[in-house]
Amino acid sequence: MSGAPAASPSPTRILGPRGYAICLGGIVWRELLRFVQQKERFLSALVRPLVWLFIFAAGFRSVLGVSIMPPYETYVLYEVYVTPGLAVMIQLFNGMQSSLSMVYDREVGSMRVLLTSPFPRWWLLFSKLIAGVAVSLAQVYVFLAIARLWGVDIPPLGYLTALPAFILTGLMLGAIGLVISSLVRQLENFASVMNFVIFPMFFASSALYPLWRVRDASEALYLVCLANPFTHAVEFVRFALYGAFDPLSGAVVLGTTIVFFALAVIAYDPGRGVMGRRGGPKGEAP
């Protein structure tokens, strides 16, 4: 037998900026590898918005006219209106899916492996978020490419100006997912996340219909939509796709990201949050 595993290391040496970058890179790389392995996940992530675009939007084109409103300078077809919302919907599902995989990781134990890393926990969670965003960007841009073939013309530069917006909205939805993952005890409970988080967030937003139309129908619902961070994520992206910047939605998205990320760090803190209370091993915890 060969090898001398126990040579004395210098623990602090490896935790410099390069170490942080390697740790982040490793977590993102693993997530992308897993994503590439799961072709069904990629397909279903694409099929969902495409069904909306091809069928729902086509059907509603005549029912729902969208008047000229910023950032659009002309009258737009309904397909064009819903595309930003559907792109952010991909990120919404992706954020919840990463959160689901956190619960799964907790159950099978790979979360334990992650958390034995000597890097601070906030950095590990942040790396997880970035990894989720990387996966969602791949999905979003493939979707936008297909939408373009379908006739949803976005100014070419818009794909570039929307990138920072997609990164931020991905972070926001991922951070919300992280907090949810800390609240969900078992994988089986995840169906309720669909019912109580994904659907209300998606429907009570400006993704499918402009808010002025919602206001016509109900002032209360309008206020709910306005308070929904998903609405602002959609608007932030919508403006960015046309090279414009909407300060209000940008601020809401940034603020929500910071608040939920802070909550996630607290939830995954060994002293305070979910791990100590809910992570007890079988037979040893109630």
């Binding site: 693993r30 590898l33 492996v113």
Partner: peptide
């Protein structure tokens, strides 16, 4: 706690990265 769909080497490289090693 290994990733079943990743190779042995990929699993080990991931863990090394978690310790800042590459």
């Amino acid at each position: 706690t290994l990733d079943l769909d990743l190779s042995v080497r990929q699993n080990l490289a991931y863990h090394a990265a978690l310790h800042g090693l590459a």
